[in-house]
Amino acid sequence: MEKYKILIIEDDPIIQTELQVLLNGNGYEASAVTDFTSVMQAVKNTHPYLILLDIKLPQESGYSICSQIRSFSNVPIIFVTSCNTDMDELNSILLGGDAFITKPYNTAILLAKISSLMKRAYPIEQIERLNWQGAILHLESSTIEYDGNQAELTKNELKILYYLFKHAGKICSRNDIVDYLWDNQLYVDDNALSVNINRIREKLAGIGLTNFIKTKHRQGYTI
């Protein structure tokens, strides 16, 4: 399953590492620019979903880099910088930045900004499919595919599988799944969740996927 790639353009090695650990620990795939003579090449090679950009950098300013990126990409850009005047923030907006956070930053606020920008830039409807262990979840057609075989899914079944795919390899508690469905205006209680899981398992078995959704006793489900 593909993770959202975030590129860090920050020359302080401590902050660079801190950001990578934070982002990787929250489900993103973070990488950092190490050669500041070829920042644009790094951006083009990485194809990031979002960029964290400092203003004060060794070769050229973050403003200049932002302006260059905007000449070929609309990727969300968050300025994370120690420059904290109103003019700094205004310049970042005028040059195409999407958000402005000053150092020392609050990690919760930074993660919230990233999540908000990701949802705005990449709504679920634009993500055509998710992959895990040979199974392909097609969101637009509400189907799951395995080894050339397909099964149709109800709205609830699709949302449950979407949540499991997004947390693939991790145990998802029943409460978390129910809360997620309620947040998406799908009213499922604990008993209805069991019914839906059983129906999904039957459909998966019908296309050759057995034991794909595993029950962890008193913990929840995992794929």
Rank of each mutant, 00 (worst) to 15 (best):
T102G: 07
M87A: 15
I127V: 10
I114S: 02
S92Y: 04
K119D: 13
L90C: 15
N91A: 12
A108P: 13
K119H: 14
G96T: 09
W132K: 10
N84M: 05
A121V: 03
R120H: 06
S115H: 15
S92M: 00
S116V: 04
K113E: 06
A99W: 01
R129K: 12
T107M: 10
Q126S: 11
N91R: 11
Y122A: 01
G96W: 00
A121E: 03
F100G: 00
W132R: 09
S116A: 07
M87D: 12
W132Q: 05
D88L: 02
A112M: 08
D98T: 04
F100A: 00
R129Y: 08
L111Q: 08
I101E: 03
I93H: 11
E89V: 03
E128F: 12
L90G: 11
Y122D: 02
I114W: 01
L111E: 04
R120G: 08
F100Y: 11
R129A: 13
N131I: 07
L94T: 07
I124G: 05
E89P: 04
L90W: 12
L94G: 10
Q126E: 07
D98F: 00
M87E: 10
P104N: 03
M118K: 13
M87N: 11
K103F: 04
R120I: 06
E89I: 03
I127E: 06
R129M: 08
E89D: 10
A99S: 11
I114M: 03
G96E: 04
M118Y: 03
I127Q: 07
L94I: 14
L90E: 13
S115V: 05
I114C: 03
A121K: 14
R120F: 10
E125R: 15
K103C: 07
L117V: 03
S116L: 02
G96Y: 04
G134R: 05
M87R: 14
I93K: 15
L110I: 04
L110T: 14
R120M: 09
E125I: 11
G97C: 02
L130D: 02
W132I: 06
Q126H: 15
I109N: 13
I109K: 09
L95P: 05
Y122Q: 01
G134W: 02
E89W: 03
G134V: 05
P123V: 02
I127G: 05
W132T: 08
G134T: 04
